[in-house]
């Protein structure tokens, strides 16, 4: 009897500890999410939100080319950005971790992430100026005679990608650097000792062991990039719309909250899919 009472007390205590987190999760995630799901099943007709359950918004997403293409654009841009960011961030992280003397590494990291400190919007507008016909890049290229006509760098996908990559290289540099410095230097020594050259050591040992850092950063990049509205809005020149822009159109112009909810859930599904794909890689255990 006594043992059981004790167990009950313990159980009650346990609930006491868990409850705040549970309430928090319910109130700020589960309930709003369910509300959004419900909202996505309603529709907006003649300026009114009609609370009849159906999948019309989701069908419309696949039927209206402009909407579906938003997802395709989002995925294309996000993939390009993620791959480019990894390719640029890895060498940077490697140089900071391996070539910069220990006492300067912190400084180098701060310099590498300095652009984080400026406002996202300001940075995007700055890129617009840098990439414009009369911007620094084109002026420089024309002065040194590489091109005779200014390149079309602003207000298109290239500009969006550049703006994104600039931002996410910093993020990935951090995650990859953190991964690189926690690797025992003996891995590299062991590989070299067993006859691997620098490239083989990288290919067979360092790269696989930094996959968690790459994947963590890549996943964050994917999530933040596919959900971003500001950069494509400012730099893309509306020459194509990504899904968040289309969601904003539903909200800002049409007050079509059900459609916006449906599109948001589709965006969430894309992120969930990315997580599932990345999680496979993040499983790598460390000895």
């Amino acid at each position: 009897m006594f043992a059981q009472t004790l167990e009950q007390t313990e159980r009650r205590k346990a609930w006491g500890f868990v409850a705040p987190a549970l309430v928090w999760t319910l109130a700020f995630f589960v309930v709003p999410f369910l509300f959004m799901v419900a909202m996505s099943l309603w529709s907006r007709q003649s300026g009114q939100i009609v609370r009849a359950w159906n999948l019309d918004n989701y069908f419309a997403f696949f039927e209206k080319a402009a909407l579906f293409k938003g997802l395709i654009n989002s995925l294309e841009i996000t993939l390009i950005v993620t791959v480019l960011s990894v390719l640029l961030a890895y060498p940077l992280a490697w140089i900071i971790a391996e070539r910069v003397p220990k006492r300067f590494q912190r400084l180098a990291l701060i310099l590498a992430i300095l652009p984080f400190w400026t406002s996202y919007v300001v940075r995007s507008y700055s890129w617009l100026l840098v990439l414009s016909k009369n911007g620094v890049v084109n002026q420089t290229l024309m002065t040194i005679g590489l091109v005779s006509e200014p390149l079309e760098l602003a207000s298109n996908r290239t500009a969006t990608v550049i703006g994104f990559v600039h931002f996410f290289v910093m993020l990935l540099t951090l995650t990859i650097y953190a991964n690189l410095v926690q690797l025992s230097p003996n891995y590299r020594r062991a590989a070299a000792d067993l006859g691997a050259n620098a490239f083989q050591t990288f290919r067979h040992v360092i790269l696989p062991l930094t996959l968690p850092g790459i994947m963590t950063g890549a996943f964050l990049t994917f999530v933040l990039c596919i959900g971003d509205y500001v950069t494509p809005q400012i730099l893309g020149g509306n020459n194509e719309l990504v899904l968040p822009q289309i969601i904003m159109l539903q909200l800002g112009r049409r007050a079509d909250f059900p459609m916006a909810a449906a599109l948001s859930i589709i965006l969430m599904l894309a992120v969930t899919l990315a997580y599932v794909l990345c999680a496979r890689w993040l499983k790598i255990e460390r000895a």
Binding site: S132, K133, N134, G135, G237, N239
Partner: peptide, 17 residues
């Protein structure tokens, strides 16, 4: 070349974009 809001449009015209 682009479809843009007030700020971007004005900037584009002013900078010769």
């Amino acid at each position: 070349k682009q479809v843009s809001d007030v700020v971007s449009s004005q900037t584009a015209l002013a900078t010769g974009e």
